[in-house]
Design a protein around this nucleic acid. Structure first.
Lengths: 263, 263
DNA sequence: GCGACTTTGTGCCTGCGTTCACAAGTGGCT
DNA sequence: AGCCACTTGTGAACGCAGGCACAAAGTCGC
């Protein structure tokens, strides 16, 4: 953002703009955001969405303990973020705070749930009932909120038909049919790496829109399918990197005895 | 997708805009950039580190299949990233490519391993041997590379002493002693939320430097301890958000052609 | 040995996300 | 009523990450 002289650029429209840019043509850019209709996000940054989920959990806990209002500073502390960031995150939902007071916990919970789409149920299928799949299937209705596991799949003949967490396991080849039939919207892949891509294809064929992938594989999916990856090995390696970096820092680095900003 | 294959995109520099606007005369504060001992990361962006781990896996697979060299374009394709980004990531390690040819797979593997600190072993402890903990303990030497699980902990008396994946389970209260004794450097928390913070404290007391947290809790740790969080509920909620957003988009076909240009 | 071709490494720019700082509301107190 | 203390919401600056495009550097063919 290079101090453009125009005021706000409004939406992300990447017009040819500028060159000369007659400033009088600026549109107020207040398109949505009036409370009446949907408070539909113009575009909430992905990072903010992740934090909203965290806030939601904290707020729910607070509500259970009887809190009715909360200040940004307090909530930010509990979430481990800067209070300005928290306020900006919440501002994406609209203005639901009261200056001088704070936010009403219940209102906030409701707004976040609505924004995250938690007012509808999202049926989940878990593919690959190994150790991890087992754990996921038993996770107890996932976070309890709106993510019922409604289908399980595996290749192992010994597992087919066996109920895990109350749901019988189906065969991989039934993925498309079963997913379509039960209206599965989220697929969780917990298979060994070689199977992941084909499983993914099956899920997509079954109409699944979102995939949570635990297999260490880069999945290829059509444009409209959203994939999120949880990769244990990568996480560990990142931690390893930090260990190494730290070791190096304390180890080497006294060459000139100068200031040597660590950074 | 976006036709980027074509070489000459035409439309070279359209940079006439904003003639005034030249604020970037700042001195970039390059003090640190001495290249004395170049090997060690001056400071690799975290995002790049995560990608390096992905490249490493792909490269290892390629090496196994007998590939000796690889071009950035090819590797980038396999990793699902832009080739320029890949080259920039690799350049953080130093210059190990050959222009006109590509990168030597083995060299690259070695350099990434070294940079990520994978040349040493990082002993792992898993706390909370429930469904998830079980899965983790059996994950088979984790990614096989340098992350041996060497300690397990739980509160459940029935589990104490029972070997899981070859390691007997110890009691929570022994965490500090056992971790210190066995030189654990990475702790994995797979406990129910209420136990997470106290377990975390125990791990820190045992000298653990890095923590991978699966519990949906914001952990409080001293400065020098690195924490990474894997939060299932958050992941699902992010996916849910995308489902909701997509539904809205196709649903409310905004007639007022104003904003809302598809990117 | 030279020219054509290939691929790396990187400077520059753009745009996003974070942080700061402050004006603008709001409720309580006098 | 008026003032004050408090807290939100956001404009603006900053820094980081991503992507383009090109010069440098190497290989291959003749």
């Amino acid at each position: 953002m290079v101090a453009r002289r125009g005021r706000r650029n409004g939406s992300a429209v990447a017009r040819k703009l500028d060159a000369d840019n007659a400033p009088t043509a600026e549109i107020p850019a207040v398109e949505v955001a009036n409370g009446s209709d949907p408070v539909r996000a113009k575009s909430i940054p992905e990072a903010a969405v992740a934090r909203l989920a965290v806030y939601l959990r904290i707020l729910s806990a607070m509500a259970e303990q009887g809190a009715t209002t909360v200040a940004s500073e307090e909530l930010a502390g509990a979430a481990g973020v800067n209070s300005a960031k928290l306020r900006k995150d919440l501002s994406y939902l609209g203005s639901y705070g009261t200056r001088g007071v704070g936010y009403e916990v219940r209102v906030l919970v409701g707004q976040i749930e609505r924004t995250l789409g938690l007012t509808r149920q999202h049926k989940v299928a878990v593919v690959g009932i190994g150790n991890l799949g087992h754990a996921l299937a038993n996770y107890g209705g996932f976070p309890g909120r709106g993510f019922p596991v409604e289908a399980l799949f595996d290749v192992d003949a010994d597992l087919i038909g066996v109920p895990v967490g109350g749901i019988p396991v189906s065969h991989l080849e039934d993925i498309p049919a079963v997913c379509a039939e039960r209206g599965i919207s989220i697929g969780v892949i917990a298979t060994p790496p070689p199977a992941a891509q084909s499983v993914c294809d099956c899920l997509v064929a079954g109409g699944v829109q979102c995939i949570l992938n635990f297999a260490p594989v880069v999945l290829q999916v059509p444009e409209q399918v959203e994939v999120r990856k949880v990769d244990l090995a990568v996480e560990l390696q990142i931690l390893s990197f930090h260990v190494a970096r730290r070791a190096d820092e304390s180890n080497g680095a006294h060459p000139v005895g100068n200031g040597m900003v660590v950074r």
